[in-house]
């Protein structure tokens, strides 16, 4: 259990790794917007090419990308089925009893799958794969800092995220230990009815809660001892700086979005 790593950060030094985490947050949002700008086969084609280029730029192995797609395969399949069988259009491709498949349906299915694929790839490439959770937390805190003025607890939220990230591995370790200890007293977590199995979790959950509260209490004291008093008057050791790379990246992203819109205007093929 010691070796679980949080999130899916893939260490590296690619162009995308080196970008400012705030910019990556913005870029991933823009990229998602871009995927919704596509309307026809050419713009979707460009979108697909861009996703491939991004994967190559980040130097993340393809197998890893596929792994992040796997959990949503069911959703993809569902989307395909819905679109193919329930979209009606003008060009009938296939007919059998009550089943009618139209070209529009097939195109819609392809477009939707592409869109979801790009969504996942975009978010995971810019954020989870190339940015450490702590950098992401910093980015959220600094990007949303202006919201503090309208009383949004941005600092508190970021601090909570940091502490959660810090303690998840500790608590996983602890769960492991408590399970072993209860197994040593003959507890059985694997057999019996569903209700019995749920009941068997009580000897794990109660000690886990108790210890979490104890930890929280001790951590709070330790933080107080280190003069923590909320975000007010607090400075940071590492301040994020945008660099030329970040500005180039956002320019490319905007150009990309504009070209998608322009490509939609070419009346080629089916338009979604």
């Amino acid at each position: 259990m010691k070796n679980i790593s949080l999130g899916q950060y893939y260490p590296g030094n690619s162009v995308i790794h080196r970008m400012d985490p705030r910019m990556k947050l913005i870029l991933s949002l823009l990229y998602i917007v871009c995927s919704f700008l596509c309307r026809n086969i050419i713009s979707f084609g460009l979108l697909f090419v861009s996703a491939i280029v991004l994967i190559l730029l980040s130097r993340i192995p393809m197998s890893l990308i596929m792994r992040s797609i796997r959990p949503i395969l069911f959703i993809l399949a569902f989307t395909v089925v819905i679109n193919i069988f329930w979209t009606s259009g003008e060009t009938l491709l296939f007919e059998w009893k009550f089943i009618h498949i139209y070209l529009e349906g097939v195109m819609n299915a392809v477009f939707m799958v592409l869109r979801i694929f790009v969504l996942i790839v975009g978010a995971s490439l810019f954020l989870t794969y190339t940015t450490t959770p702590i950098a992401l937390t910093d980015a959220i805190e600094q990007l949303f800092a202006p919201l503090k003025r309208i009383k949004v607890p941005v600092h508190e939220f970021a601090m909570m995220m940091t502490i959660a990230l810090r303690f998840i591995p500790t608590l996983i370790d602890e769960t492991d230990k408590i399970m072993s200890a209860q197994k040593a007293r003959g507890a059985d977590f694997t057999s019996g009815s569903l209700i019995n199995r749920a009941k068997a979790l009580i000897p794990i959950l109660i000690p886990l809660f108790v210890s979490s509260f104890r930890r929280a209490d001790e951590l709070a004291t330790a933080m107080e001892c280190r003069c923590y008093h909320g975000g007010e008057g607090r400075t940071r050791m590492s301040i994020l700086h945008y660099r030329a790379l970040d500005f180039i990246a956002i320019l490319i992203m905007i150009t990309f979005g504009v070209s998608l819109v322009l490509l939609n205007m070419l009346g080629i093929g089916y338009t979604m």
């Binding site: 702590i134 940091t162 990230l165 810090r166 930890r215 001790e218």
Partner: peptide, 11 residues
Amino acid sequence: FQNPDNQLVAT
């Protein structure tokens, strides 16, 4: 403090 785990805040 005593417990080394419960006084470190950052990751």
